[in-house]
């Protein structure tokens, strides 16, 4: 059942429309990420759900109740900010207790709930500390506990991991997901980091220019991007220029090979195709019938993975191979063959 419904949401600042006809339905307990570059409107949508911005038009419903024009403190939402936003004058325990106190939860129940929250975030002994005595990761965990303590209906996370270093980000995002699953709380997570969005979410809304370009499961977003922007923004992409032979039958020529794609093509003489690095193999590979001669131009040894760039005709293809200790990596200048399956080729339109 849909728990959070956003319908035809619009927001303009002066003459600038920053959110255009944004609609989204979120199930109860679902984790949805808004992914997009800076200025795409993802934070504005989140702030409208929180009540910090008033929509120009459209409606927001939480559990069937229209909250579009309710004040933020009447919406039963919990929010975690990029800058932690812990109250500097209050200790960790007082920060977590703040929402409960505002709600009028009694002293004993409040203390029990605070301890439960601190236990949940793995900081049971830091209740007496002040925010500045904590690391960034600890502060953000306290901010999460504070947001969850009053048991909000919806949890909003506004780039909560952006200010943290890489290692903490990975561990904290796993912790956020675990807590969210345990509590079954409906969550919206805003990020510009695609790996974060793909790894943590039930669904991802990719936004660009105030529009939701595609809303879908991470697997769909990555493997079946609906628009050129989604294809280019999410993950790495190899572009291959091809000549269109028969648009209705999806026949194209790449280099000297004719390839039949599984879908009709837009009218025109040329088309840009794309594929992910993992769809390209070094040398011939079973099921990958499209074989192109190429020259290695760059080799990046990343440890477990070796990222290779190879020039095939006019296109430079990026591909990943696993490191094998018994087999040295190819060298720039080596002449090789690369292979890919026509079914893995995406057509970039627009």
């Amino acid at each position: 059942m849909t728990f959070l419904t956003i319908e035809h949401l619009e927001k303009s600042f002066g003459p600038t429309r920053v959110v255009k006809d944004f609609s989204l339905s979120v199930e109860k307990g679902e984790f949805v990420s808004f992914l997009g570059p800076s200025g795409c409107g993802k934070t504005t949508v989140l702030r409208m759900v929180a009540g910090f911005e008033t929509p120009t038009s459209g409606t927001i419903r939480i559990d069937g109740k229209d909250v579009t024009h309710l004040r933020p403190n009447q919406r039963s939402i919990g929010m975690v900010f990029q800058a932690y936003a812990l109250f500097p004058n209050l200790t960790v325990a007082e920060n977590v207790a703040f929402g409960l106190k505002v709600k009028g939860v009694g002293g004993e129940e409040r203390a029990r709930r605070v301890q439960e929250m601190l236990q949940m975030i793995g900081l049971p002994d830091l209740g007496a500390r002040y925010p500045f005595q904590l690391s960034g990761g600890q502060q953000q965990r306290v901010a999460l506990a504070r947001a969850l303590a009053p048991r909000p209906q919806v949890l909003l996370l506004d780039e909560p991991l952006s200010a943290l270093d890489a290692k903490i980000r990975v561990s904290l995002r796993a912790q956020i997901r675990e807590i969210q699953r345990d509590l079954g709380i409906t969550t919206i997570f805003v990020t510009h980091d695609q790996e974060e969005a793909l790894s943590i979410s039930d669904r991802v809304a990719v936004m660009y220019g105030g529009i939701a370009e595609q809303i879908g499961r991470p697997f769909e977003i990555y493997n079946r991007p609906a628009t050129r922007f989604v294809a280019e923004f999410v993950g790495q992409l190899n572009r291959i220029e091809a000549a269109v032979l028969d648009p209705n039958a999806g026949r194209v020529r790449i280099g000297h090979q004719e390839v039949a794609l599984s879908r009709p093509l837009p009218a025109g003489e040329r088309v840009t195709l794309a594929c992910r690095p993992e769809a390209v193999s070094l040398g011939a590979a079973p099921g990958r019938d499209l074989i192109l001669p190429a020259e290695i131009t760059e080799v990046d040894f990343l440890g477990a993975v070796i990222r290779v760039k190879a020039k095939a005709g006019l296109s430079t293809l990026s591909l990943d191979t696993f490191n094998r200790p018994d087999q040295p990596p190819p060298q720039p200048g080596d002449r090789v063959q690369v292979s890919l399956a026509p079914a893995d080729l995406l057509v970039l339109e627009g």
Binding site: A50, G51, F52, R71, P72, N73, Q74, S76, I77, G78, M79, F81, A83, A85, L86, F87, F98, G99, V102, K103, A143, R146, A147, P150, L156
Partner: peptide
């Protein structure tokens, strides 16, 4: 941000 954090907690 502090104001918004407090508002989101019902203050």
């Amino acid at each position: 941000t502090l104001t918004e954090a407090a508002q989101s907690l019902g203050a």
